[in-house]
């Protein structure tokens, strides 16, 4: 059953500083939702709330499989992945980084080998699979982060500013990765402050304006 996300009346006010107010939306189709807004507008906060990494102060985050409402437990959390702006590289090889999600899900050796190599190819990192991941360039690290999130075939992928601090060539590669995955029907929610990028990638544009979520 396809995973659907519905947020209703989300309010978030960390340390008394109101960031989000009454945000509601239903992410019920596959494809790429591009969440836009200037720096500090609350895009990342909303993304983290949707990915169940942060708790809202008010409102509800509800996941559905068909009509069935899902518990916020580990089995739900394993159906989605989030790539943070600072990718967070493990002190291990590129291969070990990308295969992490499969290992913690108890996948077999052959499956780990096959899926990881497939994603390394997809991310253009196959030649560097045995290299220490911390020695990669920032663009490569970003691609590694996306490959690591995709290897477990999530039904919902959250990308927080995936091209914010990387060069043009890597930006193009990452956009190609996103466009490639869009065809698979996966739901992606991506934050960006780059309108042109949003237009290139989006099936649906969303804006955070005056702390509220609106369709763009």
């Amino acid at each position: 059953m396809k995973l659907k996300l519905e947020i209703s009346h989300i309010m978030r006010s960390p340390h008394g500083n109101l960031v989000l107010e009454d945000c509601s939306y239903s992410f019920d189709r596959g494809g790429a939702y591009l969440l836009m807004g200037p720096n500090g507008s609350g895009k990342s906060t909303l993304l983290r709330i949707c990915a169940l990494l942060e708790k809202q102060d008010r409102g509800e985050v509800t996941y559905y499989a068909g009509e069935q409402r899902l518990q916020h437990d580990i089995s739900l959390k394993r159906r989605m992945t989030l790539v943070l702006p600072q990718v967070g590289i493990f002190n291990a090889t590129v291969f070990d980084n990308v295969s992490y999600g499969l290992k913690i899900r108890g996948a077999g050796r052959q499956e780990i080998e096959r899926k990881t190599l497939e994603l390394l190819e997809f991310a253009g990192l196959a030649a560097k699979k045995n290299q220490r991941a911390l020695s990669l360039s920032s663009g490569e690290k970003q691609r590694l982060g996306i490959a690591r999130a995709l290897v477990v075939a999530p039904e919902m992928l959250f990308l927080d500013e995936p091209t914010a601090s990387i060069d043009e060539a890597n930006t193009r590669l990452i956009e190609e990765m996103i466009l490639g995955k869009k065809k698979s029907g996966m739901t992606m929610i991506i934050t960006t402050h780059d309108r042109l990028q949003a237009e290139r990638l989006a099936d649906q544009m969303l804006l955070i304006r005056d702390k509220k979520l609106v369709e763009g």
Binding site: A51, L53, I74, K77, R78, T81, L82, V83, L84, Q86, V87, G88, F90, Y100, G101, I104, R105, R148, A149, V152, F158
Partner: peptide, 15 residues
């Protein structure tokens, strides 16, 4: 250890 490692691990589905 960088706190981001905990977050990344969580977002990838670790218990």
């Amino acid at each position: 250890v960088d706190p981001i490692i905990r977050q990344v691990s969580t977002t990838l589905g670790a218990t």
